[in-house]
């Protein structure tokens, strides 16, 4: 059996007979870390129920509030879209930012550090796996919300919609990678900070209402969270009243999202290297203070 065949027949992350270096190692690490996130979901399908059911409860509550105050029907669609996007934010908080903290708690972090791979590749794998798995849940929420509450979509540009979504995801998960490095230095605070960063972000990012309801500078400040502009742009592109309720035009939002992608990904790389050094120097990598 030649080496290529050997690599193909072994599952990701388990091949120790072939020495892989450079970008191949990077790629293999990405796939190996993304693998459990995707396969884990297949192995425990009932989790899908909770991941869809819980956000749907929140979405339904907000939809009924809109119905109680006789809001225009597009607002119901806004709430459904926002509810679907909460899946990504929660994934970034709990599955990216806090992940290295969990790994430290379980004793895996030290193994990651001493393995001959780059931490950046591990984070990228986490992001990729998390993004794909979460996309399925978000789609399910949109589908269910649309059917249950009869949401009408009017897509003006599929290309722009696809671009906005991909840029939002890249910037958001880049932000998650950056936050993961910061969380490396935390202990119990990590859980509390993730917990704290839910509702306040739903509020300032306009998950359940158009962000232009806020004064310009508050909305501009909230745009540091990629989902703020991403969600606003997507609403402008898929709802009839979207453009009238948009914060700024979609082209501007795409440019800002592009800038955020670069800033967060580069920031993640530098911050990770710095935090890794700091954590090794202070000996806090295996320090689990419950």
């Amino acid at each position: 059996m030649n080496k290529t065949a050997q690599v193909k027949e072994t599952s990701p992350g388990t091949d120790n007979s072939t020495k892989v270096t450079g970008w191949r190692l990077f790629l293999k690490t990405v796939i190996a870390r993304a693998y459990p996130r995707l396969i884990g979901q297949q192995r425990e399908k009932s989790w899908m129920f909770f991941d869809i059911f819980l956000p749907m409860l929140a979405v339904s509550s907000y939809v009924f509030v809109y119905r109680a105050i006789q809001a225009p029907e597009d607002y119901v669609g806004f709430a459904v879209m926002g509810g679907a996007m909460t899946a990504f934010w929660l994934n970034v908080l709990w599955g990216m930012s806090s992940q290295l903290y969990w790994e430290k708690e379980q004793g895996n972090l030290a193994l990651y550090i001493i393995a001959p791979n780059q931490m950046m590749a591990i984070l990228l794998g986490m992001a990729l796996g998390g993004m794909l798995a979460t996309a399925l849940r978000a789609l399910a929420i949109i589908f269910l919300g649309s059917v249950l509450f009869k949401v009408g979509f009017v897509v003006t540009s599929f290309l722009q919609l696809f671009s906005v979504f991909m840029l939002s995801m890249t910037a958001l998960y880049g932000m998650g990678m950056m936050m993961a490095s910061l969380f490396l230095l935390l202990n119990r605070e990590a859980w509390h900070i993730s917990n704290l960063a839910q509702e306040p972000i739903y509020l300032v990012s306009g998950f359940y209402f158009p962000i232009n309801s806020f004064p310009f500078w508050i909305a501009a400040g909230a745009s540091i969270i990629p989902l703020t502009l991403g969600l606003d742009a997507m609403r402008q592109l898929i709802f009839a009243s979207g453009p009238a309720l948009g914060f700024v035009d979609v082209r501007t939002e795409i440019i800002v999202l592009l800038v955020l992608c670069v800033v967060f990904l580069v920031g993640a790389k530098f911050l990770l290297a710095h935090m890794e050094k700091l954590a090794i120097r202070e000996g806090s990598l295996t320090d689990s203070r419950r």
Partner: peptide, 17 residues
């Protein structure tokens, strides 16, 4: 912060409509 943010979501929703 958390409960105030949670209440504020409803206040903003109510306020804009």
């Amino acid at each position: 912060v958390k409960p105030i943010a949670s209440a504020s979501i409803l206040v903003v929703m109510y306020g804009i409509i």
